[in-house]
């Protein structure tokens, strides 16, 4: 499923909404998650999963093409942990 297919599915569920409204809602959804993560916060969507960020220490890396060493600075990276219901749904017993 890609973003445009998600938009189509939502439009079908909500015939009263205009296409641009559906698009704005989906933009708000992902923008708000992005903003909170950029602020260093957490996002918890029970049943689906939780987004957070983790610190990565600075390290010495190597350009795999040239073999040259490069300093990779410390940074924050996104992290996602699927929720219990999601995990169970992917593995029906």
């Amino acid at each position: 499923m890609i973003r445009s297919e998600l938009l189509q599915a939502l439009a079908k569920d909500n015939p009263d909404l205009r296409a641009e409204e559906v698009e704005q809602v989906v933009d708000i959804f992902f923008d708000e998650i992005t903003k909170r993560l950029a602020e260093g916060g957490r996002v918890e969507l029970r049943g689906f999963g939780a987004f957070s960020t983790r610190e990565r220490e600075a390290r010495t890396g190597r350009n795999p093409r040239t073999g040259e060493t490069v300093q990779v600075p410390a940074k924050r990276v996104p992290y996602f942990k699927p929720g219990k219901e999601m995990r169970e749904r992917l593995n029906p017993s």
Partner: peptide, 13 residues
């Protein structure tokens, strides 16, 4: 709408 977005993503997966 929020539930619907999550449900469609869950269904696809």
């Amino acid at each position: 709408l929020v539930e619907s977005i999550l449900a469609h993503m869950c269904d696809a997966m």
